[in-house]
Design a binder for these strands. Sequence first.
DNA 1: ACCTTGTCTAGATGACTCTCTAAGCAGCTT
DNA 2: AAGCTGCTTAGAGAGTCATCTAGACAAGGT
Lengths: 118, 118
Amino acid sequence: MSSQQNAECCEPTLIEALSPESAAELARSFKVLGDPVRLRVLSLIAARKGGEVCVCDITDAFDLTGPTISYHLRQLREAGLVDCQRRGTWVYYWIIPAKLGLLSQFLDPADAVVTSEA
Amino acid sequence: MSSQQNAECCEPTLIEALSPESAAELARSFKVLGDPVRLRVLSLIAARKGGEVCVCDITDAFDLTGPTISYHLRQLREAGLVDCQRRGTWVYYWIIPAKLGLLSQFLDPADAVVTSEA
DNA sequence: ACCTTGTCTAGATGACTCTCTAAGCAGCTT
DNA sequence: AAGCTGCTTAGAGAGTCATCTAGACAAGGT
């Protein structure tokens, strides 16, 4: 948990030459976002008032088996996009906004950086 | 060309319940971003002064065959992330910023929307 | 102690992805 | 027109992914 590597020299953005290493790392995150089920799971969590959702609520929202939802949650977890905690019988998931913000800024560095005008 | 569907009712963001259709469409875009080669190609184009890059320059930057680069460029094209034009012998590619901005805002709606505090 | 319910892991399978080689088209140049 | 270079398409193969069923683990209730 809490392994955001934001302590590097600077976050990469699209308008800078991207090293193969940064590209590989970013691609891993975007690949996890590249599945409709995972996007809907993320959205379901993000839209929830308390910011937390029980796995059973997620499973109920899809026509998929428990193990399949569990698989997708693991992908999201390993990508650092969500984290979870067991509380008694149930396991609750929540979003890690910093990670999403990082990816967002990579795609649209205009927010953070003055783009290089010719 | 110029098929940005930004004329819909409103762009989806993470903090709103995401319809399966929107999820499928967004996932298609993120999936295309989920490859290190394609990210580096995008970055290479975005970082270029004039905003345009010839395919041969892209091919030179990778240890991959021409057809493989061509395959990735097609993925990017079909996702609406880049567009291209043949000029004489060479084909030039450029980025479609609006599409990237859309994806960026989806991930970090805080820029555009006041997030729902509990 | 046992059963029930919630969640995860293991293993299998069909589908898709990325890469290559071979071949094709487009446009120069001579 | 013949050949060369730049780029794309076609088809094949190795690897990866999403899904399932079966089984295991965890926690609570009786």
